[in-house]
Amino acid sequence: MDHIAQGIDLVVQDVTVAYNNGHVALHDASFSLNPGTICALVGVNGSGKSTLFKAIMGFVRPVRGTVRIAGDPVKAAHKKNWVAYVPQSEDVDWSFPVSVWDVVLMGRYGYMNFLRIPGAQDKRLAMESLERVKMTEFKDRQIGELSGGQKKRVFLARALAQQGRIILLDEPFTGVDFKTEGAIIALLRELRDDGHIILVSTHNLGTVPEFCDQVVMINRTVLAFGPTETTFTEENLALAFGGALRHLRLDHTDVPGAERNELVVLTDDEGALVVGAGGRLERRKARNDDQKAGSEP
């Protein structure tokens, strides 16, 4: 599976991470991504999603296994500015005294000299990145003065300015309205077409088939990995989420072309509201099925 295509690929092999207190957060995780792909990383809370991210970013050292980026170890990839990271909104101090422009320029720090004085090229690339995410007019705003979607776009612009080849996004759709979500997805598709590897950690299952080419399902290890069509299946989801997933099986549907008169809704932490014909609520029906599904295996 791990053949090297042109450009930069990401190979995670047998990665096992244990923390100081003896907690093994991830073991024997393996998968590899070729350039030009959007890959979703799905799993329940505490399944090791963030640990895997940390391993790829080199913040934790695996006790076994390796992460290689274009054949290089992670530290070397950092020096080449290959890995870019878009943090989760909750992890950012939004009252920090920096402007949008300051944040985007931070993407260029790896290229700047000791005193981090931006050169002409740094400024040009930062400007282009801002234009690409359509945030030029907000250049001088303090970051806290932006809406949820704008905040996300600023950090995407930082990743663009950094010219990262592998872009890691941590829960990019929390605190973002439906319309902005579409805009972000469109941008990610553009980046994929440019040959970037985009790895998205998310528990927003509904959007996965919409924009992800590949899926990695994890629960302390990689349970399944492959193209979305063949991997993002009901069985695999049940495997990854166990009983944590709400399983709603409805006995009639309006979905055109559905083979049976049946609709299956899978959702994790957000309870789905399912409205049947004539606005009749289908929750009760669903809950009954939920119990049945739980006793099946």
Binding site: F59, H78, Y85, V92, V98, M106
Partner: peptide, 21 residues
């Protein structure tokens, strides 16, 4: 001299690490 590095360190340590600081 290091005010920008220190600022980035305070603002977003993960990014600082990722760009090789």
């Amino acid at each position: 001299a290091l005010r920008k590095d220190l600022l980035l360190y305070c603002f977003d340590q993960n990014h600082a690490k990722v760009v090789g600081m």
